[in-house]
Design a binder for these strands. Structure first.
Lengths: 344, 344
DNA sequence: CGACGGATATAGATCGATCTAAATCCTCCG
DNA sequence: CGGAGGATTTAGATCGATCTATATCCGTCG
């Protein structure tokens, strides 16, 4: 049994008839209006249960012109970092009984526009967007055209008056450098530098700034590329040079873990004669060998805040925009940056 | 500028009027019907563009009684494994221009039911469900009541006539044991055994069966718990015993990575005097030190297949059910199970 | 007794598309 | 010229809720 017969489902009108009230009254009961008498309410509720009534939110949406859904456009679902962000978004959304529609731009601006249109057709009430690499004025134009609340997360393109929730990559990197300097490191290399998006650029700035602050050697930078790639040959060259670096701050944990392996193949021991710091605090960082020191960027919190901000925008329907919420990063010290400085 | 004014959006009727045709004709143009004359079509399309018309799928859904959305209920968004599954689902869905609504049961049967109801209210056309630990007949009853196509993924509860897409955990574990035996290991322990859900039970069976097949010592099993926990004390005891194991097959990669660290704290070298095999082929497996041998369970493919199967069910509206699609696992050999057997 | 007013209940329009059934429009043929 | 018949087009009902404005009920008070 239980073949999904396409039988017409029970509608509010059916309920109303069965309960001997009008459609309007039944609707009021649904929305728990104080206008309806207790007896009536009970009778209707009872009838709903008996008939197995299921609320048709779609019909209500049409009339109310809002759906209780929002779209989440990520540049790469599937990456643990983004899926944690999503978990945060969904958590906050669910608390406000909002459902999340996901879309994956795979860091392609074209796909991104298509996804946003698709979401718009489904009448999402707003969008949380992690702008794809290469997002340009086309995106801004489209968003303006769609006339839809939009909060950017993690990265920001220059959209007019944008709300934004992200991590403080700049100060995160600065913290990392300060920590390394504090434990005696002097030749610090930044691995994975790109200018692909705001989050990458902020890291570069943080590194440059910190290096200058501490009066260190400038220019120790290994270029990165999309998809957690970096210029491995360049790193190898640096390691083989006369005056090799003694510490690395990496674009993120994935790169940092790879750098640690790379070091070993050069006969260096990460955590002993070379300090490595990553960024993001992915689950694998703690379990790595040696455990990876990292700058936690708290994607779950970013997701929660972004969802909350979007809900606020949707509710207030119009006024002030351009809020920036920055979730402060925290340095999590583990063995990969030298035994001396670690407790456990 | 670009405050999202709540101005009434352009409707199909507006377009029709402006183009000098009827609402019906405009609708036909939308759906690319061959019934409408070329000239008319062009005129209408033009008008749509000029007015900035946006298709209101919600309204259409109401009439058509289908929404082009499906719900994906996961037991733990946020985990990389599930987010990869989701990426697969979304990929296939998107190809069929279906959008994915996500919901997180956090492995709680109550939440799971609530989530399913919520999705149902949003008129999803079907559901992909990774049943929460402890799912029981309540779930089956609810699904029957909702009368909605449902494909189970990765785990299956005993839902009447269920479609299911998953990995072949049983044969995966068997492969792992065979490989270890082939490279001379004899005392193989299974770390992380639980009976919490079908995927866990299948692994246990695979292990027991393989052990028997190869005539090995029975009973080397360390119990697991939800959330990638396992009985660490028990493992420690085994390692300190007179006749310690020389290899471990683990419930999944997360546990395997932890086991490798554990081994080191007992002075054993994973990949040299002890072989470790994980399961899932998470991204961190390849980057671990030593790189982790693992049984790839291909969550992305599972997601794609599940989405495809669900689309099929939705399309055919009724007939045959109970299809089981099993994605074969593959053993990926890396350094963690002994240098001899590795190429690179 | 009739009017007033708070408490309930409801009729009917409405959201924006799709669908059915029927109306027009042409062209061409007898 | 009348009409058959394919090609287009359309009026109007419909999906299932919400909203506005109005009706009805009933107790109370002047």
């Amino acid at each position: 049994m239980s073949e999904y017969t396409n039988r017409r489902p029970v509608s509010l009108l059916d309920v109303a008839k069965a309960a001997g009230v009008s459609r309007a009254t039944a609707s009021l009961v649904l929305r728990e209006s104080p206008l309806v008498a207790d007896g009536t309410r009970q009778r209707v509720v009872e009838t709903m249960k008996n008939l197995g009534y299921i609320y048709n939110r779609g019909a209500a949406n049409l009339r109310r012109n809002s759906t209780g859904t929002i779209g989440l456009v990520l540049s790469n679902i599937g990456s643990p970092f983004y899926s944690t962000l999503m978990a945060g978004v969904d958590e906050t959304n669910e608390a406000g009984s909002i459902v999340t529609l996901v879309a994956n731009s795979v860091d392609s601006p074209d796909r991104q526009i298509r996804q946003i249109r698709r979401l718009r057709e489904h009448n999402v009430d707003g969008i949380i967007l992690c702008p794809a690499i290469g997002s340009d004025e086309t995106l801004a134009a489209e968003l303006a055209r769609l006339d839809l609340p939009c909060v950017q997360a993690l990265r920001h393109a220059e959209l007019l008056g944008g709300d934004y929730v992200g991590a403080d990559y700049r100060s995160g990197i600065e913290k990392a450098v300060r920590h390394l300097v504090g434990s005696g490191r002097r030749r610090i290399v930044f691995v994975g530098a790109t200018t692909l998006h705001s989050a990458a650029r902020e890291r570069n700035e943080g590194f440059r700034h910190a290096i200058r602050m501490h009066g260190l050697n400038d220019g120790l930078v290994v270029a990165g590329a999309p998809d957690n790639a970096y210029d491995v040959a360049a790193l190898d060259r640096l390691l083989k040079a006369r005056n090799p670096p003694d510490a690395a701050v990496c674009y993120n944990d994935v790169i940092a873990l790879d750098v640690m392996n790379r070091l070993r193949s050069h006969g260096r021991q990460p955590g002993q004669d070379f300090a490595v710091i990553g960024m993001d605090n992915l689950p694998q960082a703690a379990g790595a060998f040696p455990a990876l020191t990292t700058i936690a960027t708290h994607p779950r919190e970013v997701g929660q805040q972004a969802a909350a901000l979007l809900q606020k925008r949707i509710a207030q329907l119009g006024p002030s925009k351009g809020e920036h919420i920055i979730v402060p990063p925290s340095l999590i010290v583990r063995r990969s940056c030298g035994e001396a400085s670690v407790a456990a």
